[in-house]
Design a protein around this nucleic acid. Structure first.
Length: 142
RNA sequence: GAGGAGGCGCAGGCGGUUGCAGAUUGGUCAGUUCGCUGGCUAAGUCUGAGGAAAGUCCGGGCUCCCAAAAGAUCGAACUUGCUAGGUAACGCCUAGUGCGGGCGACCGUGAGGAGAGUGCCACAGAAACAUACCGCCGAUGGUGUUUGGGUCUGAGCCGCAAAUACACAGGUAAGGGUGCAAGGGUGCGGUAAGAGCGCACCAGCAAUGUCGUGAGGCAUUGGCUCGGUAAACCCCGGUUGGGAGCAAGGUUGUAGGAGUCAUGGUUGAUCUUUUUCCGGCUCCGGGCAGGGUGUGGGCAACCCAUUCUGCGAAAUCCGCUAGAGGUGUCUGGUGACAGGCAUCCCAGAUAGAUAACUGCCCUUCUGGUGAUCGUCUAAAUGGCAGCAUCAGAAGAACAGAACCCGGCUUAUGUCCGCCUCUUCCCUU
RNA sequence: GCGAGCGUAGCCAAGUGGUUAAGGCAGUGGAUUGUGGUUCCGCCAUUCGUGGGUUCGAGUCCCAUCGUUCGCC
């Protein structure tokens, strides 16, 4: 289970924009940074995804659904072994795949993994992510 | 049966469902110079990590810059260093030589020069590179005593002889002691005492012969003998053009020049030679650098193309996966490897895809059941081993491509599998 | 991708190849004091990250390896 390309944050500016303007929530092993991107002005400000914004500009009355985009940040400080880092990323992606339908459109999320997370399992990540998304009010009222 | 040595292989197999990435074929949207390009999408098809992908310790390919290439001398760097071969190359590999270790199979080896020079060798010791502390000797020389001889009446004297004392000059490197190390070792002769001073054997060195492509091996002869350290500086030999690295570089964008009046321009330095290099001069032919705007025509001016320099953007495209490629087979070679033929196409992500669950088979282990032969035993309804079948468990660990290859090193095993050899014990 | 440094007691650390590795803080034993502090005297490294090698001798020199820190693009 992994996220399709549409729902991923892919460029450096995306991440730095979220870090600059987004809100911040954190639990023991994870940190969530989130940024709502519903205003069209913000599209122009952020130099990201020009092809996407042009698509929207062509037909402004039809509210095309802006896809939720998620990035996962995990540094070498968490673990020096690539296998460990990749496993954590895959687990987080699988969880987010389940939550994706409940997330309000237009959010840009970055999940930062803290160095303590090496010992955590799937269940731990599931709980913490749920907690984070609810506290940031990213998940709309079902 | 027990212990050991060396080498090779494998990284379970075939499917299913869901999901991700790429390719292809469609569909659709946008742009278009009508060639196509890009985005989205999936009814389908195909493909999707490793033996180390790792560490980045070496060697290359590839790309750009210093015009390029070849040679000579000097310099610099490498830190390469027994020999022969293999390789695109290597500090890698193969086969050998010497030395060291092991009963052996086998293993290790940073293995040029200390007889070119300099430095260092703490403490101890006399002395660490040329010296003598204790000791031994004191033949010879010196001094003294005694005896004899010579001379002489005698005292005495002596280039006299013998004996003896001293340990003064001196000799010695056997022995003691110190040390990692004290100038070959052992034995016999020899000597005042000793000593390669002489001889025998051994070690080492040199020469000659012989075998080997060679490192070296073997034999003979010779003069007798030289401290260690070069992973201290260094000397010698060898190798190398330097720098940067796929974030190279191309493409694209943008800014500023040049658009030719130079007599020549280079790789660490100097010199020489060559050129399908760049540029210049002379002569001949062509042109007065090209295209456009402008103008009657030209000049000027401006724009484009060309060329140079600087800057920047984006993870859009190319580079970007057909290669010193894999597999099979034959030939040559002791071998590393080379050659021929056939056949195959096998990841290309870019905040970075390869995952989750599951079915059958296979392998191993544990337990049960069954039949039959083998073996142990005096004997078996008992034990051991194999076979068939059933049930359960395990199939892991180390670890994730990021331009690509060749090595090295490190990590790792389901009590993984296979082969060869060696030592000891028991039985025949 | 390219490059540079550091590992020495619980902590901070010095250390030309030559004793059983200098200090400071901390710890600990004793003395001083009626008690505590101060002060004074002691003790504390089974060996210099690990494994090989060179050397008579290695924390130091060489090689390999592990960990860690930092720089540039």
């Amino acid at each position: 289970m992994a996220l399709p390309k549409v729902h991923r944050l892919r460029h450096r500016q995306d991440f730095s924009a979220v870090y600059k303007a987004g809100l911040r929530r954190s639990t023991q092993n994870l940190t969530l940074r989130a940024l709502q991107r519903s205003q069209p002005a913000e599209f122009n400000l952020s130099a990201v995804g020009t092809d996407l914004s042009t698509d929207l500009k062509v037909e402004p009355p039809v509210e095309k659904v802006v896809p939720t985009r998620i990035g996962i940040s995990i540094s070498q400080k968490v673990s020096k072994r690539a296998v460990v880092r990749n496993r954590i990323k895959r687990q987080l992606k699988a969880i987010l795949q389940q939550f994706l339908p409940y997330i309000a459109p237009g959010w840009q999320l970055v999940i930062v993994v803290k160095p303590t997370a090496t010992e955590c399992g799937y269940e731990q990540f599931l709980q913490e992510l749920k907690q984070l998304l609810i506290s940031a009010e990213v998940i709309n009222g079902h």
